[in-house]
Amino acid sequence: MSIRLSGVGYTHPNGQAALHAVDLTLNQGEQVAIIGPSGAGKTTLLRLLATSLMPSSGELSLLEQRPAQLRGSALRRLRSRIGLIHQSPPLPPRQRVVTAVLAGRLGQWSLLRALVSLCYPLDIPGARQELARLDLAERLFERCDQLSGGQQQRVGIARTLYQRPDLLLADEPVSAMDPVLADHTLTLLGEVARERRLPLVASLHAVDLALKHFPRIVGLRAGQVLFDKAACDVSEQDLAALYANDTLAANAAKPVSHETARPVRCL
């Protein structure tokens, strides 16, 4: 298996509990969407999987290793195998797109190679190839601050794909994109995950996109797993319970008719 959480909990330094006794297992190549209301703990869960946070309780195993037991270079090597697509990619405004994409492998390069690449991009064809997947090849030498929010999100995705991680994580990766582009981008992420046999975990507010693009759905509410089901088994009742008392519940549930969302067929 690639990921296993057993009784994992996380409490913020201010004492606020974000996750409670989460049990979750993902195998190689599995694709899972995490859905739930704001404040449910989706981003915290992804940060745990990215090892930028460590569990306050329970046990987390990633790629056959236990991050909490690693230190120094061993932890850095594990992190270099994990790709996290951010909702708002940390792109230096004056940096060129090609340099931003090549930064995906900084954790795998020597310090000298990384410094050289900042001045003279060392793999322009590789950066162009990943950008072309996202219809951004013509933006290769533009500055990041000249791009729209949706384009910056796609540059962040290209950087993570260039990294060639063993685990692919995505935190609201299409929030700044129009519906057609969001659909295309999630299709691409699914295809890349299948081609490379990567586990893919994405948090999404758009329930219809989650049901359409991900075979497995995990509903997270108040830091706990409310359900963990195949997309075609998620019912209107499941979604009503997940978003209960949420002021946006009606809007969140409105487009999730299974006929509309066309989820992946259960086998």
Rank of each mutant, 00 (worst) to 15 (best):
residue 3 I to Q: 05
residue 3 I to G: 01
residue 13 P to D: 14
residue 18 A to L: 15
residue 24 L to I: 05
residue 34 I to A: 06
residue 35 I to P: 10
residue 37 P to M: 12
residue 38 S to G: 07
residue 40 A to E: 01
residue 40 A to W: 01
residue 48 L to S: 00
residue 52 S to K: 01
residue 54 M to W: 04
residue 56 S to A: 03
residue 58 G to H: 00
residue 60 L to H: 03
residue 63 L to M: 06
residue 64 E to Y: 02
residue 74 A to H: 15
residue 81 R to F: 04
residue 83 G to K: 13
residue 83 G to Y: 11
residue 85 I to M: 05
residue 88 S to I: 14
residue 89 P to N: 07
residue 89 P to G: 09
residue 92 P to K: 12
residue 99 T to F: 04
residue 99 T to Q: 15
residue 102 L to F: 00
residue 106 L to D: 14
residue 107 G to M: 08
residue 111 L to P: 05
residue 114 A to V: 11
residue 114 A to Y: 09
residue 119 C to L: 15
residue 120 Y to L: 14
residue 121 P to Q: 08
residue 131 L to D: 07
residue 131 L to C: 06
residue 136 L to W: 02
residue 136 L to V: 07
residue 138 E to M: 07
residue 143 R to C: 14
residue 143 R to Q: 15
residue 145 D to L: 02
residue 149 G to H: 12
residue 149 G to R: 09
residue 157 I to G: 07
residue 157 I to F: 07
residue 172 E to L: 00
residue 174 V to D: 04
residue 178 D to F: 10
residue 184 H to Q: 15
residue 184 H to I: 03
residue 186 L to G: 02
residue 191 E to S: 11
residue 195 E to N: 13
residue 204 L to N: 09
residue 213 H to L: 01
residue 217 I to D: 13
residue 220 L to V: 06
residue 230 A to S: 11
residue 234 V to C: 07
residue 239 L to P: 05
residue 240 A to W: 11
residue 243 Y to R: 06
residue 247 T to F: 07
residue 250 A to Q: 15
residue 259 E to A: 12
residue 259 E to L: 13
residue 264 V to P: 05
residue 264 V to R: 15
residue 266 C to N: 00
